[in-house]
Amino acid sequence: MLAEGIRAHRWWIVAAAVGFAVLLTAPAYLTPFQVRVGQLFLFSAGLGVAWTILGGFAGYWSFGHTAFIGLGAFVAGAFELHVPLGSPVATMVAGTALGSLACAAVSAVIAYPILRLRGIYFAIAMLGVSQVFAELTNNVDAFKGTMGINMPNAVPASMEPQTFFYYVFVAATALTLGVAFWVKVSRLGYGLVSIREDEDTARMLGVPTERYKIWAFVLSATLTGLLGIVYAHALGYITTGSVYRTDFSLNMIVYALLGGIGTIVGPVLGSALMVWLTQVVLGRLLDVHMFITGALLVAIVLLAPHGLVGFARKLLRRGAGGGA
């Protein structure tokens, strides 16, 4: 299956390889500000793709995925604070692994009950979950949610912090893309898509819907957590407010919607466009960020419900001439 999937998507894979080659060399000729924008793009694209594994493939739209950004960040942070290992890099690696594992474990525990909800009820329940996690982080002493945690500094002396985290983000995002691609072309991916299209019929065809939904949820949550942990390290200092952010939850959906829901390239394009718009074009208009995000959201849903990818497909189909 994987071989077949690779063959069918070989041009996408080539494009992704070229893209990552460019990304890897980019810090050599970018300004520090641009490198930071690059970080944000990688983080956003990774989040959008991680969200897509559940929301785009299986059709279970989570409105609270920031729960896993926060959970991962705080578990990693608390561990690194209390159990420093020999070298800072080893501490960071161990904390990252533990935080991601925590996301996997917690998502596996809540998956079964919460995935029995469908549509908006699942969406809102996830919003609830993220709020509960945030409140608990604020009130559980080990996490120091309100006071915040200083993430131990793991940046090698020879490197600029923004460049170091840029490369860490490249790795995390590449991993996320790889996992998402593997899911997409595997049996799991087809099963998830059939769940999105019609869950009852999927079950009738023998798709193990419960198990597949749980897999998608856990993979999505773990990758979201991993990205969140990297983000926390890049921030250097985290509070509940800086990692449990409802706008993260929202942005993941916006990236996917803007680019094209259910595809992998969609959230990548969507995040590129959004990051470029908000950081570069509107960088000085911080006051109206929220207004513009909202307006964009409304515009996408009304004007391009299938996103940039859907729009491009429509153009291609029209260009091909006479196709139905």
Binding site: A123, L250, H289, F291, A295, V301, P305
Partner: peptide, 22 residues
């Protein structure tokens, strides 16, 4: 009219963000 109920919920969310900003 144009899309799913989930999508219409997103429209209301978008408007909420705009109004909150205002």
């Amino acid at each position: 009219d144009r899309s799913s109920l989930l999508a219409s919920m997103l429209v209301t969310f978008g408007v909420a963000l705009m109004l909150r900003n205002v």
